[in-house]
């Protein structure tokens, strides 16, 4: 169903590929996107795994805890990004008030107003928002790990760390690969959050590839350039996603 519009859109972009590859602004955007995706996906995978393991244990109120864990994913990005702007504000944001109340900071920090802290704030907001995606997939994956195997190893005297490394992790590989591939695709295509939170600033420090593509199409009315950017970045993301997916899944597993 998507094939026809895709073909129409992308055919226009082929001619612009060379220009996009030589564009200096694109280089900067590509670097920002890589930094953003690399850091946020790494953090999300770690946190998501920890949360999934936690939510897979039995305790009272587990259903509620699961619902809460998914909560951030359930919020519309564009709307929650407005709230994050509010949270990070230099004068009435809680990201300033909390450290000040705890005595960690004297001067208010304009989190979104400096290049390095703006990127950090962006990553924090993204990790919060998308960790549930990883948690949910890994939690579903954990259901396929048979309990008796754990118990058998337990009887053999294996500690929780060894059981995790030898039983859980190998069986979780397909789920990890799935979460990793799709999180990477989403992170490398990040748009809404940046658009609302920083608009790509300050000084282009949070400008990403999809912002370039979007601006080309809608701000500058150069759909061919937008399509070319999508084509180049799409090919790159595809290669990375496949390579990492295969790595995490393990080729022999198929």
């Amino acid at each position: 169903m998507l094939a026809v519009p895709l073909a129409v859109g992308l055919a226009a972009g082929v001619g612009g590929v060379g220009d996009v590859l030589r564009d200096r602004g694109m280089g900067r955007a590509a670097w920002n996107t890589l930094v953003f995706a690399g850091l946020s996906v790494t953090l999300e995978m770690g946190l998501g795994l920890a949360f999934a393991l936690l939510l897979n244990r039995e305790f009272r109120g587990r259903g509620l805890a699961r619902a809460m864990a998914i909560l951030p994913w359930a919020l519309p990005t564009a709307v929650m990004a407005m709230s994050w702007r509010w949270i990070f504000s230099d004068s009435w944001g809680i990201a300033n008030d909390l450290p000040r109340t705890l005595g960690l900071m004297n001067e208010p920090v304009a989190w979104l107003g400096r290049p390095a802290t703006a990127m950090a704030a962006l990553i924090a907001a993204d990790v919060w928002k998308t960790t549930p995606f990883v948690t949910l997939i890994l939690l579903a994956g954990l259901q396929g790990v048979p309990r008796d195997l754990h118990e058998a190893m337990s009887l053999d005297g294996a500690g929780p760390v060894r059981r995790f490394l030898w039983v859980t992790l190998p069986l979780l590989r397909p789920a990890i690969a799935l979460a990793l591939v799709f999180r990477l695709i989403q992170a490398l295509g990040i748009f809404d959050l940046v658009w609302v939170l920083t608009g790509g600033g300050p000084a282009d420090a949070t400008r990403t590839v999809s912002l370039e593509a979007y601006d080309s199409v809608f701000r500058h009315l150069e759909p061919a350039r937008g399509a070319a950017i999508t084509l180049v970045s799409g090919a790159f993301i595809f290669a990375v996603a496949l390579a990492l997916g295969a790595l995490a899944r393990g080729r022999h597993a198929e």
Partner: peptide, 8 residues
């Protein structure tokens, strides 16, 4: 003369 946060 302007607060540092004005860049946001």
């Amino acid at each position: 003369g302007a607060p540092a946060g004005v860049t946001t």
